[in-house]
Amino acid sequence: MDKKTLKLLAKKLMFTMNEEEYDTLSEEFATILKQMDLIGKIDNIDKVEPLIYPFPLENTLMREDEVLDELPIDDILLNSGSSLYNQVKVPKVVE
């Protein structure tokens, strides 16, 4: 995997890494992709239904439509780095 692709991947995840870190990552990619290739060679793997949940969760119930938990404004803003007029403040969002 070339560095340019890796940098683009990092950019999409909204962080940057330094050059050596990309080298390590590149090695890791080679390893994992090789291992995943082996998985791809398992007989009829493409015919297997993916298992997303550990086991079928039966009788899952939906929530009744009740208003129960709301946060006080102080709790909403407690951890925000910046706030104004009871709202979380960020640099201007330009669409």
Binding site: R63, D65, V67, L68, D69, E70, L71, I73, Y85
Partner: peptide
């Protein structure tokens, strides 16, 4: 609906900012 789709905070149009919010 009375409450939101994935949380039990109120689904209502409020002019008071952040008055119907849950941790979810």
């Amino acid at each position: 609906s009375n409450s939101k789709i994935f949380s039990s905070a109120k689904n209502g149009f409020s002019d008071i900012p952040n008055s119907n919010v849950s941790v979810v």
